[in-house]
Nucleic acid binder design. Structure first.
Lengths: 295, 295
DNA sequence: ACAATAGTGTCTTTAAGACATTATTTC
DNA sequence: GAAATAATGTCTTAAAGACACTATTGT
Protein backbone atom coordinates (compact mmCIF):
# COMPACT_ATOMS: atom_id res chain seq x y z
CA UNK A 1 0.00 0.00 0.00
CA UNK A 2 2.66 2.44 0.92
CA UNK A 3 6.35 2.78 0.80
CA UNK A 4 6.04 0.31 3.56
CA UNK A 5 2.81 -1.53 3.85
CA UNK A 6 0.94 -2.76 6.81
CA UNK A 7 1.24 -6.21 5.34
CA UNK A 8 4.53 -7.63 6.42
CA UNK A 9 6.64 -10.31 4.90
CA UNK A 10 4.78 -12.93 6.85
CA UNK A 11 1.04 -13.09 6.40
CA UNK A 12 -0.43 -11.95 9.62
CA UNK A 13 -3.81 -10.99 8.24
CA UNK A 14 -5.18 -14.51 8.13
CA UNK A 15 -6.66 -15.10 11.51
CA UNK A 16 -4.10 -13.81 13.90
CA UNK A 17 -6.01 -10.59 14.17
CA UNK A 18 -3.11 -8.66 15.54
CA UNK A 19 -4.04 -5.10 16.24
CA UNK A 20 -1.48 -3.38 14.12
CA UNK A 21 -1.72 0.02 15.73
CA UNK A 22 1.51 1.35 17.10
CA UNK A 23 3.57 -1.53 15.87
CA UNK A 24 5.92 1.19 14.73
CA UNK A 25 7.35 1.35 18.22
CA UNK A 26 8.00 -2.35 18.45
CA UNK A 27 9.09 -2.66 14.87
CA UNK A 28 12.32 -4.56 14.44
CA UNK A 29 13.48 -4.71 10.84
CA UNK A 30 15.95 -7.47 11.60
CA UNK A 31 13.14 -9.85 12.37
CA UNK A 32 12.35 -10.43 8.71
CA UNK A 33 14.06 -12.23 5.92
CA UNK A 34 16.31 -9.52 4.57
CA UNK A 35 16.61 -8.22 1.05
CA UNK A 36 19.81 -6.50 0.06
CA UNK A 37 19.79 -3.42 -2.16
CA UNK A 38 22.68 -2.63 -4.43
CA UNK A 39 23.23 0.02 -7.06
CA UNK A 40 24.97 -0.96 -10.29
CA UNK A 41 26.09 1.41 -13.01
CA UNK A 42 26.23 0.93 -16.76
CA UNK A 43 28.78 3.61 -17.60
CA UNK A 44 29.28 4.17 -21.32
CA UNK A 45 31.91 6.21 -23.06
CA UNK A 46 33.48 6.58 -26.47
CA UNK A 47 37.08 5.63 -27.06
CA UNK A 48 38.67 5.67 -30.48
CA UNK A 49 35.26 5.83 -32.07
CA UNK A 50 34.01 2.74 -30.31
CA UNK A 51 31.51 2.35 -27.50
CA UNK A 52 33.04 1.20 -24.21
CA UNK A 53 31.58 0.19 -20.87
CA UNK A 54 33.24 0.36 -17.47
CA UNK A 55 33.73 -3.06 -15.86
CA UNK A 56 35.44 -4.32 -12.73
CA UNK A 57 37.00 -7.69 -12.19
CA UNK A 58 35.61 -9.64 -9.28
CA UNK A 59 38.12 -10.77 -6.73
CA UNK A 60 35.74 -12.96 -4.76
CA UNK A 61 33.25 -15.71 -5.32
CA UNK A 62 30.84 -16.11 -6.85
CA UNK A 63 32.00 -15.25 -10.32
CA UNK A 64 35.55 -14.75 -9.12
CA UNK A 65 37.64 -13.49 -12.01
CA UNK A 66 34.59 -12.50 -14.01
CA UNK A 67 33.96 -8.99 -15.14
CA UNK A 68 30.96 -7.22 -13.67
CA UNK A 69 29.31 -3.84 -13.65
CA UNK A 70 30.60 -1.45 -11.00
CA UNK A 71 28.26 -1.18 -8.06
CA UNK A 72 27.76 -1.91 -4.44
CA UNK A 73 25.52 -1.70 -1.42
CA UNK A 74 23.21 1.16 -0.86
CA UNK A 75 24.30 2.73 2.42
CA UNK A 76 21.15 2.57 4.46
CA UNK A 77 19.97 5.89 5.80
CA UNK A 78 22.93 7.77 4.40
CA UNK A 79 22.36 8.25 0.70
CA UNK A 80 19.71 8.13 -1.97
CA UNK A 81 19.89 6.03 -5.12
CA UNK A 82 21.57 8.49 -7.49
CA UNK A 83 23.94 9.41 -4.68
CA UNK A 84 25.03 5.81 -4.39
CA UNK A 85 25.45 5.61 -8.16
CA UNK A 86 27.78 8.60 -8.37
CA UNK A 87 29.71 7.35 -5.37
CA UNK A 88 30.28 3.96 -6.95
CA UNK A 89 31.19 5.59 -10.22
CA UNK A 90 33.68 7.91 -8.55
CA UNK A 91 35.22 5.10 -6.53
CA UNK A 92 35.56 2.75 -9.45
CA UNK A 93 36.83 5.26 -11.98
CA UNK A 94 39.26 6.72 -9.50
CA UNK A 95 37.67 10.09 -10.07
CA UNK A 96 37.80 11.14 -6.46
CA UNK A 97 38.96 14.14 -4.61
CA UNK A 98 40.73 16.23 -7.16
CA UNK A 99 39.21 19.27 -8.74
CA UNK A 100 39.46 18.02 -12.26
CA UNK A 101 37.82 14.81 -11.11
CA UNK A 102 34.84 16.76 -9.83
CA UNK A 103 34.69 18.65 -13.10
CA UNK A 104 34.75 15.43 -15.09
CA UNK A 105 32.08 13.88 -12.91
CA UNK A 106 29.88 16.91 -13.30
CA UNK A 107 29.78 16.40 -17.05
CA UNK A 108 28.51 12.85 -16.70
CA UNK A 109 24.87 12.24 -17.40
CA UNK A 110 23.23 9.80 -15.01
CA UNK A 111 19.74 8.34 -15.17
CA UNK A 112 17.98 5.43 -13.61
CA UNK A 113 17.79 2.40 -15.86
CA UNK A 114 15.70 -0.09 -13.94
CA UNK A 115 15.69 -2.56 -11.08
CA UNK A 116 16.43 -6.26 -11.14
CA UNK A 117 15.18 -8.49 -8.38
CA UNK A 118 14.86 -12.14 -9.34
CA UNK A 119 15.33 -14.15 -6.14
CA UNK A 120 18.13 -16.27 -7.60
CA UNK A 121 20.12 -13.65 -9.44
CA UNK A 122 22.66 -13.73 -6.64
CA UNK A 123 23.32 -17.15 -5.06
CA UNK A 124 24.03 -15.72 -1.65
CA UNK A 125 20.73 -14.02 -0.92
CA UNK A 126 17.90 -12.10 -2.48
CA UNK A 127 19.42 -8.95 -3.91
CA UNK A 128 17.51 -6.15 -5.59
CA UNK A 129 19.78 -4.12 -7.78
CA UNK A 130 18.88 -0.65 -8.98
CA UNK A 131 20.75 -0.03 -12.20
CA UNK A 132 21.85 3.39 -13.43
CA UNK A 133 22.95 4.43 -16.88
CA UNK A 134 25.79 6.91 -17.32
CA UNK A 135 27.06 8.75 -20.39
CA UNK A 136 30.62 9.93 -19.92
CA UNK A 137 33.14 11.77 -22.06
CA UNK A 138 36.42 10.01 -22.64
CA UNK A 139 37.95 9.58 -19.19
CA UNK A 140 41.43 8.52 -18.15
CA UNK A 141 41.92 4.84 -17.40
CA UNK A 142 40.50 3.91 -14.02
CA UNK A 143 42.88 3.88 -11.09
CA UNK A 144 42.56 0.45 -9.56
CA UNK A 145 43.98 1.63 -6.28
CA UNK A 146 40.68 1.99 -4.54
CA UNK A 147 38.44 -0.93 -4.46
CA UNK A 148 38.14 -3.78 -6.87
CA UNK A 149 40.84 -6.02 -8.19
CA UNK A 150 40.81 -4.19 -11.50
CA UNK A 151 38.64 -1.76 -13.39
CA UNK A 152 38.81 -1.00 -17.09
CA UNK A 153 36.87 0.26 -20.07
CA UNK A 154 35.86 -2.57 -22.37
CA UNK A 155 34.57 -2.28 -25.92
CA UNK A 156 31.00 -3.53 -25.84
CA UNK A 157 31.71 -5.41 -29.04
CA UNK A 158 34.06 -7.66 -27.07
CA UNK A 159 31.35 -8.79 -24.67
CA UNK A 160 28.94 -11.69 -24.86
CA UNK A 161 25.53 -10.20 -24.33
CA UNK A 162 23.50 -13.33 -25.00
CA UNK A 163 21.49 -13.47 -21.84
CA UNK A 164 22.28 -16.65 -19.94
CA UNK A 165 18.87 -16.20 -18.30
CA UNK A 166 19.63 -19.54 -16.67
CA UNK A 167 20.20 -17.79 -13.39
CA UNK A 168 22.66 -19.02 -10.88
CA UNK A 169 26.41 -18.91 -11.22
CA UNK A 170 28.10 -21.43 -13.45
CA UNK A 171 31.12 -22.90 -11.72
CA UNK A 172 34.28 -20.83 -11.71
CA UNK A 173 34.38 -19.77 -15.35
CA UNK A 174 37.51 -17.72 -15.56
CA UNK A 175 37.86 -14.64 -17.67
CA UNK A 176 38.50 -16.00 -21.12
CA UNK A 177 39.27 -19.60 -21.28
CA UNK A 178 37.32 -22.50 -22.46
CA UNK A 179 36.46 -22.62 -26.12
CA UNK A 180 36.18 -19.88 -28.73
CA UNK A 181 33.40 -17.96 -27.03
CA UNK A 182 31.95 -14.99 -28.87
CA UNK A 183 33.08 -12.68 -26.09
CA UNK A 184 33.55 -12.03 -22.40
CA UNK A 185 30.72 -13.26 -20.17
CA UNK A 186 29.60 -10.97 -17.39
CA UNK A 187 28.81 -11.96 -13.82
CA UNK A 188 25.29 -12.40 -12.47
CA UNK A 189 22.62 -11.04 -14.81
CA UNK A 190 24.80 -8.11 -15.76
CA UNK A 191 24.68 -9.02 -19.43
CA UNK A 192 20.93 -8.43 -19.31
CA UNK A 193 21.37 -5.15 -17.48
CA UNK A 194 23.99 -3.99 -19.94
CA UNK A 195 21.82 -4.96 -22.90
CA UNK A 196 18.95 -2.97 -21.40
CA UNK A 197 21.31 -0.04 -20.93
CA UNK A 198 22.42 -0.18 -24.53
CA UNK A 199 18.82 -0.29 -25.69
CA UNK A 200 18.05 2.72 -23.54
CA UNK A 201 21.07 4.61 -24.79
CA UNK A 202 20.20 3.93 -28.41
CA UNK A 203 16.67 5.17 -27.89
CA UNK A 204 17.64 8.08 -25.66
CA UNK A 205 19.85 9.89 -28.13
CA UNK A 206 16.97 9.97 -30.58
CA UNK A 207 14.88 12.28 -28.44
CA UNK A 208 17.39 13.96 -26.19
CA UNK A 209 20.59 15.90 -26.78
CA UNK A 210 22.50 13.52 -24.50
CA UNK A 211 24.79 12.31 -27.25
CA UNK A 212 26.77 15.45 -26.47
CA UNK A 213 27.51 14.01 -23.01
CA UNK A 214 29.96 11.65 -24.73
CA UNK A 215 31.98 14.60 -26.05
CA UNK A 216 34.11 17.37 -24.63
CA UNK A 217 32.59 20.79 -24.05
CA UNK A 218 33.30 21.94 -27.59
CA UNK A 219 32.79 19.53 -30.44
CA UNK A 220 32.15 19.38 -34.16
CA UNK A 221 29.18 18.01 -36.03
CA UNK A 222 31.26 15.16 -37.45
CA UNK A 223 32.32 14.23 -33.91
CA UNK A 224 28.69 14.22 -32.88
CA UNK A 225 27.89 12.03 -35.84
CA UNK A 226 30.59 9.62 -34.72
CA UNK A 227 28.75 9.28 -31.40
CA UNK A 228 25.51 8.37 -33.11
CA UNK A 229 27.29 5.95 -35.41
CA UNK A 230 29.03 4.23 -32.50
CA UNK A 231 25.92 3.95 -30.33
CA UNK A 232 23.64 2.87 -33.14
CA UNK A 233 26.31 0.79 -34.85
CA UNK A 234 25.48 2.27 -38.24
CA UNK A 235 27.01 4.63 -40.73
CA UNK A 236 25.00 7.81 -41.20
CA UNK A 237 24.80 10.10 -44.18
CA UNK A 238 27.12 12.99 -43.34
CA UNK A 239 25.28 15.65 -45.28
CA UNK A 240 21.79 14.85 -44.08
CA UNK A 241 22.99 14.43 -40.50
CA UNK A 242 24.67 17.81 -40.52
CA UNK A 243 21.63 19.64 -41.78
CA UNK A 244 19.29 17.78 -39.44
CA UNK A 245 21.30 18.57 -36.31
CA UNK A 246 21.44 22.26 -37.15
CA UNK A 247 17.70 22.32 -37.84
CA UNK A 248 16.75 21.18 -34.33
CA UNK A 249 16.27 24.25 -32.14
CA UNK A 250 18.47 24.30 -29.05
CA UNK A 251 20.43 21.16 -29.84
CA UNK A 252 23.80 22.80 -30.55
CA UNK A 253 25.06 26.36 -30.50
CA UNK A 254 27.87 27.62 -32.65
CA UNK A 255 31.02 28.87 -30.99
CA UNK A 256 32.03 30.79 -34.11
CA UNK A 257 35.37 29.00 -34.16
CA UNK A 258 36.71 26.06 -36.09
CA UNK A 259 39.13 23.27 -35.35
CA UNK A 260 42.85 23.97 -35.71
CA UNK A 261 43.38 21.30 -38.29
CA UNK A 262 41.32 19.40 -40.79
CA UNK A 263 40.64 15.70 -40.58
CA UNK A 264 43.55 13.27 -40.39
CA UNK A 265 42.84 12.16 -43.91
CA UNK A 266 42.13 15.56 -45.36
CA UNK A 267 39.12 17.78 -45.59
CA UNK A 268 38.36 21.30 -44.41
CA UNK A 269 38.41 22.38 -40.79
CA UNK A 270 35.08 21.86 -39.04
CA UNK A 271 33.18 24.48 -37.06
CA UNK A 272 32.85 23.86 -33.36
CA UNK A 273 29.67 23.86 -31.29
CA UNK A 274 28.62 23.29 -27.74
CA UNK A 275 25.46 21.79 -26.33
CA UNK A 276 22.39 24.01 -26.44
CA UNK A 277 19.67 24.37 -23.85
CA UNK A 278 17.11 22.01 -25.34
CA UNK A 279 16.17 19.07 -23.12
CA UNK A 280 14.20 17.30 -25.85
CA UNK A 281 14.84 17.22 -29.58
CA UNK A 282 12.02 18.49 -31.76
CA UNK A 283 11.99 16.96 -34.23
CA UNK A 284 13.92 13.90 -33.04
CA UNK A 285 16.85 12.31 -34.82
CA UNK A 286 15.29 8.99 -35.69
CA UNK A 287 17.36 5.91 -36.36
CA UNK A 288 17.32 4.45 -39.84
CA UNK A 289 14.33 2.15 -39.90
CA UNK A 290 15.44 -0.82 -42.04
CA UNK A 291 11.81 -1.90 -42.15
CA UNK A 292 12.80 -5.16 -40.50
CA UNK A 293 12.31 -4.57 -36.82
CA UNK A 294 8.80 -3.26 -37.18
CA UNK A 295 7.69 -5.76 -34.63
CA UNK B 1 30.64 -4.08 -8.58
CA UNK B 2 28.14 -6.86 -8.68
CA UNK B 3 24.65 -7.55 -7.65
CA UNK B 4 26.31 -7.61 -4.31
CA UNK B 5 29.66 -6.03 -4.03
CA UNK B 6 32.62 -6.83 -1.94
CA UNK B 7 32.29 -3.40 -0.49
CA UNK B 8 29.91 -3.59 2.40
CA UNK B 9 27.72 -0.99 3.98
CA UNK B 10 30.42 -0.03 6.39
CA UNK B 11 33.70 1.18 4.97
CA UNK B 12 36.18 -1.50 5.73
CA UNK B 13 38.69 -0.55 3.08
CA UNK B 14 40.28 2.26 5.04
CA UNK B 15 42.96 0.66 7.10
CA UNK B 16 41.34 -2.40 8.57
CA UNK B 17 42.83 -4.47 5.81
CA UNK B 18 40.43 -7.33 6.34
CA UNK B 19 41.13 -10.15 3.95
CA UNK B 20 37.79 -10.39 2.25
CA UNK B 21 38.19 -13.86 0.79
CA UNK B 22 35.59 -16.36 1.85
CA UNK B 23 33.58 -13.90 3.84
CA UNK B 24 30.65 -15.51 2.08
CA UNK B 25 30.72 -18.30 4.62
CA UNK B 26 30.66 -15.96 7.58
CA UNK B 27 28.28 -13.55 5.93
CA UNK B 28 25.37 -12.53 8.12
CA UNK B 29 22.95 -10.21 6.41
CA UNK B 30 21.35 -9.21 9.68
CA UNK B 31 24.57 -7.59 10.83
CA UNK B 32 24.05 -4.54 8.63
CA UNK B 33 21.71 -1.62 8.72
CA UNK B 34 18.78 -2.98 6.80
CA UNK B 35 17.01 -1.53 3.81
CA UNK B 36 13.45 -2.56 3.13
CA UNK B 37 12.19 -3.20 -0.39
CA UNK B 38 8.58 -2.64 -1.31
CA UNK B 39 6.73 -2.79 -4.60
CA UNK B 40 4.11 -0.14 -5.32
CA UNK B 41 1.73 -0.12 -8.26
CA UNK B 42 0.33 2.79 -10.24
CA UNK B 43 -2.73 1.09 -11.68
CA UNK B 44 -4.61 3.17 -14.22
CA UNK B 45 -7.98 2.53 -15.77
CA UNK B 46 -10.70 4.38 -17.60
CA UNK B 47 -14.08 4.93 -16.00
CA UNK B 48 -16.79 7.02 -17.60
CA UNK B 49 -14.25 8.52 -19.94
CA UNK B 50 -11.98 9.67 -17.16
CA UNK B 51 -8.60 8.39 -16.05
CA UNK B 52 -8.65 6.70 -12.63
CA UNK B 53 -5.94 5.34 -10.36
CA UNK B 54 -6.28 2.62 -7.75
CA UNK B 55 -5.63 3.85 -4.22
CA UNK B 56 -5.89 2.32 -0.76
CA UNK B 57 -6.58 4.10 2.47
CA UNK B 58 -3.94 3.70 5.12
CA UNK B 59 -5.14 2.34 8.42
CA UNK B 60 -1.93 2.93 10.30
CA UNK B 61 0.58 5.62 10.93
CA UNK B 62 2.29 7.32 9.37
CA UNK B 63 -0.15 8.94 7.00
CA UNK B 64 -3.07 7.21 8.71
CA UNK B 65 -6.23 7.99 6.79
CA UNK B 66 -4.29 9.14 3.76
CA UNK B 67 -4.65 7.51 0.40
CA UNK B 68 -1.65 5.72 -0.98
CA UNK B 69 -0.63 3.56 -3.88
CA UNK B 70 -1.24 -0.15 -3.41
CA UNK B 71 1.91 -2.03 -2.58
CA UNK B 72 3.82 -3.91 0.01
CA UNK B 73 6.93 -5.80 0.95
CA UNK B 74 8.82 -7.88 -1.50
CA UNK B 75 8.77 -11.40 -0.14
CA UNK B 76 12.42 -12.22 0.13
CA UNK B 77 13.48 -15.32 -1.72
CA UNK B 78 9.96 -16.12 -2.83
CA UNK B 79 9.08 -13.83 -5.71
CA UNK B 80 10.58 -11.49 -8.26
CA UNK B 81 9.59 -7.86 -8.72
CA UNK B 82 6.80 -8.23 -11.31
CA UNK B 83 5.50 -11.17 -9.31
CA UNK B 84 5.15 -8.99 -6.27
CA UNK B 85 3.43 -6.33 -8.35
CA UNK B 86 0.75 -8.66 -9.69
CA UNK B 87 0.25 -10.14 -6.24
CA UNK B 88 -0.32 -6.72 -4.72
CA UNK B 89 -2.59 -5.76 -7.56
CA UNK B 90 -4.63 -8.94 -7.21
CA UNK B 91 -4.90 -8.56 -3.46
CA UNK B 92 -5.89 -4.95 -3.55
CA UNK B 93 -8.36 -5.16 -6.42
CA UNK B 94 -9.93 -8.27 -4.99
CA UNK B 95 -9.19 -10.01 -8.25
CA UNK B 96 -8.16 -13.26 -6.65
CA UNK B 97 -9.01 -16.85 -7.14
CA UNK B 98 -11.90 -16.84 -9.53
CA UNK B 99 -11.54 -17.69 -13.16
CA UNK B 100 -12.84 -14.40 -14.43
CA UNK B 101 -10.44 -12.68 -12.09
CA UNK B 102 -7.53 -14.49 -13.69
CA UNK B 103 -8.88 -13.56 -17.11
CA UNK B 104 -9.14 -9.91 -16.12
CA UNK B 105 -5.65 -9.91 -14.65
CA UNK B 106 -4.23 -11.46 -17.78
CA UNK B 107 -5.42 -8.49 -19.82
CA UNK B 108 -3.58 -6.04 -17.60
CA UNK B 109 -0.38 -4.56 -18.92
CA UNK B 110 2.36 -4.23 -16.34
CA UNK B 111 5.74 -2.58 -16.69
CA UNK B 112 8.37 -1.32 -14.33
CA UNK B 113 8.20 2.41 -13.73
CA UNK B 114 11.20 3.16 -11.56
CA UNK B 115 12.62 2.95 -8.06
CA UNK B 116 12.48 5.50 -5.28
CA UNK B 117 14.97 5.36 -2.47
CA UNK B 118 15.48 8.66 -0.68
CA UNK B 119 16.51 7.82 2.88
CA UNK B 120 13.75 9.92 4.44
CA UNK B 121 10.85 9.00 2.20
CA UNK B 122 9.53 6.74 4.95
CA UNK B 123 10.03 8.00 8.50
CA UNK B 124 10.39 4.51 9.95
CA UNK B 125 13.41 3.32 8.03
CA UNK B 126 15.16 3.46 4.71
CA UNK B 127 12.75 1.97 2.19
CA UNK B 128 13.47 1.44 -1.48
CA UNK B 129 10.27 1.17 -3.44
CA UNK B 130 10.15 -0.34 -6.91
CA UNK B 131 7.15 1.17 -8.69
CA UNK B 132 5.19 -0.57 -11.41
CA UNK B 133 2.76 0.89 -13.90
CA UNK B 134 -0.39 -0.99 -14.87
CA UNK B 135 -2.94 -0.38 -17.59
CA UNK B 136 -6.24 -2.07 -16.82
CA UNK B 137 -9.59 -2.28 -18.53
CA UNK B 138 -12.56 -1.12 -16.51
CA UNK B 139 -12.65 -3.43 -13.49
CA UNK B 140 -15.32 -3.92 -10.85
CA UNK B 141 -14.95 -1.92 -7.67
CA UNK B 142 -12.26 -3.38 -5.42
CA UNK B 143 -13.37 -5.73 -2.69
CA UNK B 144 -12.00 -4.31 0.50
CA UNK B 145 -12.29 -7.63 2.25
CA UNK B 146 -8.69 -8.58 1.95
CA UNK B 147 -6.13 -6.22 3.15
CA UNK B 148 -6.30 -2.52 3.50
CA UNK B 149 -8.93 -0.45 5.20
CA UNK B 150 -10.39 0.56 1.85
CA UNK B 151 -9.45 0.49 -1.79
CA UNK B 152 -11.07 2.48 -4.56
CA UNK B 153 -10.54 3.93 -8.00
CA UNK B 154 -10.01 7.68 -7.86
CA UNK B 155 -10.14 10.13 -10.75
CA UNK B 156 -6.64 11.48 -11.13
CA UNK B 157 -8.15 14.92 -11.59
CA UNK B 158 -9.25 14.81 -7.95
CA UNK B 159 -5.71 14.37 -6.65
CA UNK B 160 -3.12 16.90 -5.65
CA UNK B 161 -0.01 16.00 -7.58
CA UNK B 162 2.09 18.98 -6.59
CA UNK B 163 5.10 17.20 -5.21
CA UNK B 164 5.53 18.07 -1.56
CA UNK B 165 9.21 17.13 -2.06
CA UNK B 166 9.67 18.25 1.53
CA UNK B 167 10.02 14.66 2.58
CA UNK B 168 8.85 13.43 5.90
CA UNK B 169 5.28 13.01 6.99
CA UNK B 170 3.33 16.08 7.94
CA UNK B 171 1.41 15.46 11.15
CA UNK B 172 -1.79 13.52 10.89
CA UNK B 173 -3.35 15.24 7.91
CA UNK B 174 -6.61 13.48 7.51
CA UNK B 175 -8.19 12.66 4.20
CA UNK B 176 -9.65 15.94 3.08
CA UNK B 177 -10.00 18.43 5.77
CA UNK B 178 -8.22 21.59 6.36
CA UNK B 179 -8.77 24.32 3.85
CA UNK B 180 -9.90 24.23 0.23
CA UNK B 181 -7.03 22.14 -1.03
CA UNK B 182 -6.81 21.56 -4.78
CA UNK B 183 -7.21 17.83 -4.24
CA UNK B 184 -6.42 14.76 -2.20
CA UNK B 185 -2.83 14.52 -0.98
CA UNK B 186 -1.15 11.14 -1.21
CA UNK B 187 1.00 9.51 1.42
CA UNK B 188 4.80 9.42 1.30
CA UNK B 189 6.21 10.47 -2.07
CA UNK B 190 3.41 8.72 -3.89
CA UNK B 191 2.33 11.91 -5.62
CA UNK B 192 5.73 11.98 -7.30
CA UNK B 193 5.48 8.33 -8.26
CA UNK B 194 2.00 8.81 -9.65
CA UNK B 195 3.09 11.86 -11.62
CA UNK B 196 5.95 9.85 -13.09
CA UNK B 197 3.50 7.09 -13.95
CA UNK B 198 1.20 9.51 -15.73
CA UNK B 199 4.11 10.93 -17.69
CA UNK B 200 5.15 7.44 -18.68
CA UNK B 201 1.61 6.50 -19.68
CA UNK B 202 1.22 9.60 -21.80
CA UNK B 203 4.46 8.89 -23.60
CA UNK B 204 3.93 5.16 -23.86
CA UNK B 205 0.72 5.24 -25.85
CA UNK B 206 2.48 7.30 -28.49
CA UNK B 207 4.81 4.51 -29.51
CA UNK B 208 3.05 1.39 -28.32
CA UNK B 209 -0.41 -0.05 -28.87
CA UNK B 210 -0.97 -0.24 -25.11
CA UNK B 211 -3.89 2.17 -25.17
CA UNK B 212 -5.91 -0.89 -26.12
CA UNK B 213 -5.11 -2.37 -22.70
CA UNK B 214 -7.61 0.12 -21.28
CA UNK B 215 -10.41 -1.36 -23.40
CA UNK B 216 -12.29 -4.63 -23.65
CA UNK B 217 -11.20 -7.21 -26.18
CA UNK B 218 -13.33 -5.69 -28.94
CA UNK B 219 -13.49 -1.94 -29.26
CA UNK B 220 -14.25 0.84 -31.71
CA UNK B 221 -11.98 3.54 -33.01
CA UNK B 222 -13.94 6.23 -31.16
CA UNK B 223 -13.50 4.27 -27.93
CA UNK B 224 -9.79 4.11 -28.60
CA UNK B 225 -9.79 7.82 -29.26
CA UNK B 226 -11.49 8.36 -25.90
CA UNK B 227 -8.54 6.59 -24.25
CA UNK B 228 -6.04 8.89 -25.87
CA UNK B 229 -8.13 11.93 -25.00
CA UNK B 230 -8.41 10.87 -21.37
CA UNK B 231 -4.72 10.04 -20.95
CA UNK B 232 -3.48 13.10 -22.79
CA UNK B 233 -6.21 15.35 -21.46
CA UNK B 234 -6.90 16.76 -24.91
CA UNK B 235 -9.57 16.57 -27.56
CA UNK B 236 -8.39 14.96 -30.75
CA UNK B 237 -9.64 15.42 -34.27
CA UNK B 238 -11.93 12.44 -34.87
CA UNK B 239 -11.36 12.16 -38.61
CA UNK B 240 -7.60 12.42 -38.56
CA UNK B 241 -7.33 10.08 -35.60
CA UNK B 242 -9.42 7.46 -37.33
CA UNK B 243 -7.37 7.49 -40.48
CA UNK B 244 -4.10 7.54 -38.60
CA UNK B 245 -4.92 4.52 -36.44
CA UNK B 246 -5.93 2.46 -39.46
CA UNK B 247 -2.76 3.47 -41.29
CA UNK B 248 -0.43 2.00 -38.66
CA UNK B 249 0.33 -1.62 -39.58
CA UNK B 250 -0.59 -4.12 -36.88
CA UNK B 251 -2.18 -1.64 -34.49
CA UNK B 252 -5.79 -2.82 -34.84
CA UNK B 253 -7.49 -5.57 -36.81
CA UNK B 254 -11.05 -5.38 -38.02
CA UNK B 255 -13.55 -7.89 -36.69
CA UNK B 256 -15.89 -7.26 -39.60
CA UNK B 257 -18.69 -6.46 -37.18
CA UNK B 258 -20.17 -3.23 -35.89
CA UNK B 259 -21.70 -2.14 -32.62
CA UNK B 260 -25.35 -2.96 -31.95
CA UNK B 261 -26.34 0.63 -31.51
CA UNK B 262 -25.04 4.01 -32.50
CA UNK B 263 -23.76 6.54 -30.04
CA UNK B 264 -25.96 7.72 -27.18
CA UNK B 265 -26.38 11.02 -28.87
CA UNK B 266 -26.80 9.77 -32.40
CA UNK B 267 -24.49 8.80 -35.18
CA UNK B 268 -23.94 5.64 -37.17
CA UNK B 269 -22.84 2.34 -35.65
CA UNK B 270 -19.08 2.00 -35.42
CA UNK B 271 -17.03 -0.93 -36.67
CA UNK B 272 -15.28 -3.01 -34.06
CA UNK B 273 -11.63 -3.96 -33.90
CA UNK B 274 -9.27 -5.85 -31.68
CA UNK B 275 -5.63 -5.29 -30.92
CA UNK B 276 -3.18 -6.31 -33.64
CA UNK B 277 0.19 -7.94 -33.22
CA UNK B 278 2.37 -4.85 -33.46
CA UNK B 279 4.47 -4.16 -30.38
CA UNK B 280 5.58 -0.73 -31.59
CA UNK B 281 3.65 1.79 -33.63
CA UNK B 282 5.26 2.81 -36.91
CA UNK B 283 4.64 5.61 -37.41
CA UNK B 284 3.79 6.65 -33.86
CA UNK B 285 0.70 8.59 -32.79
CA UNK B 286 2.34 11.77 -31.63
CA UNK B 287 0.65 14.08 -29.18
CA UNK B 288 -0.32 17.54 -30.35
CA UNK B 289 2.79 19.64 -29.87
CA UNK B 290 1.47 23.05 -28.78
CA UNK B 291 4.96 24.43 -29.42
CA UNK B 292 5.15 25.39 -25.78
CA UNK B 293 6.84 22.45 -24.10
CA UNK B 294 9.72 22.37 -26.52
CA UNK B 295 12.04 22.35 -23.57
C1' DA C 1 -36.50 17.52 -38.59
C1' DC C 2 -32.37 18.02 -36.12
C1' DA C 3 -28.20 17.15 -33.87
C1' DA C 4 -24.45 14.27 -33.23
C1' DT C 5 -21.22 11.20 -34.87
C1' DA C 6 -18.58 7.50 -38.06
C1' DG C 7 -15.89 7.50 -41.69
C1' DT C 8 -13.66 9.39 -46.11
C1' DG C 9 -11.56 12.87 -49.30
C1' DT C 10 -8.50 16.67 -50.27
C1' DC C 11 -5.09 20.04 -49.67
C1' DT C 12 -1.02 22.31 -47.38
C1' DT C 13 3.00 22.12 -44.78
C1' DT C 14 6.77 19.81 -42.78
C1' DA C 15 10.29 16.67 -42.57
C1' DA C 16 13.11 12.54 -44.02
C1' DG C 17 16.16 10.60 -47.22
C1' DA C 18 18.62 10.04 -51.67
C1' DC C 19 21.72 12.32 -54.36
C1' DA C 20 24.58 15.99 -56.26
C1' DT C 21 27.81 19.81 -55.71
C1' DT C 22 31.30 23.06 -53.96
C1' DA C 23 35.05 24.24 -51.14
C1' DT C 24 38.85 23.14 -48.15
C1' DT C 25 42.35 20.55 -46.22
C1' DT C 26 46.02 16.56 -45.68
C1' DC C 27 49.24 13.53 -47.70
C1' DG D 1 47.73 16.38 -57.83
C1' DA D 2 44.75 13.05 -55.52
C1' DA D 3 41.81 11.71 -51.97
C1' DA D 4 38.99 12.69 -48.23
C1' DT D 5 35.77 15.42 -45.99
C1' DA D 6 32.82 19.73 -44.30
C1' DA D 7 28.99 21.98 -45.61
C1' DT D 8 25.14 23.24 -48.68
C1' DG D 9 21.56 22.57 -52.39
C1' DT D 10 17.83 20.08 -54.75
C1' DC D 11 14.36 16.74 -55.45
C1' DT D 12 11.07 12.98 -54.13
C1' DT D 13 8.24 10.77 -50.92
C1' DA D 14 5.85 10.18 -46.53
C1' DA D 15 3.24 11.89 -43.01
C1' DA D 16 0.77 15.37 -39.93
C1' DG D 17 -2.90 18.48 -39.57
C1' DA D 18 -6.67 21.54 -41.14
C1' DC D 19 -10.89 21.38 -43.31
C1' DA D 20 -14.78 19.82 -45.92
C1' DC D 21 -18.08 16.40 -46.88
C1' DT D 22 -21.25 12.23 -46.87
C1' DA D 23 -23.78 8.80 -44.53
C1' DT D 24 -26.09 6.92 -40.57
C1' DT D 25 -28.09 6.90 -36.29
C1' DG D 26 -30.77 8.64 -31.78
C1' DT D 27 -33.91 12.00 -29.83
Amino acid sequence: MAAQDDTRGDTEDDGTGVGERDWLAEYDPRAYTPVAVTVDVVALTLRAGELHVLLVERGERPYRGCWALPGGFLRAGEEDLPGAAVRELAEETGLQGTLEAAAALSRIHLEQLGSYGAPDRDPRMHVVSVAYLAFAPDLPDPQAGTDAAAAAWHPVSALDLTAPRTAGPPADTHGGGVGARPGIRLAFDHAVILADGLDRARAKIEYSPLATAFLQHDFTIPELRAVYEAVWGERLHAGNFHRKVLSVPGFVESTGATTERGGTRGGPRARTYHSGDARLLHPPLLRPSHEDDIR
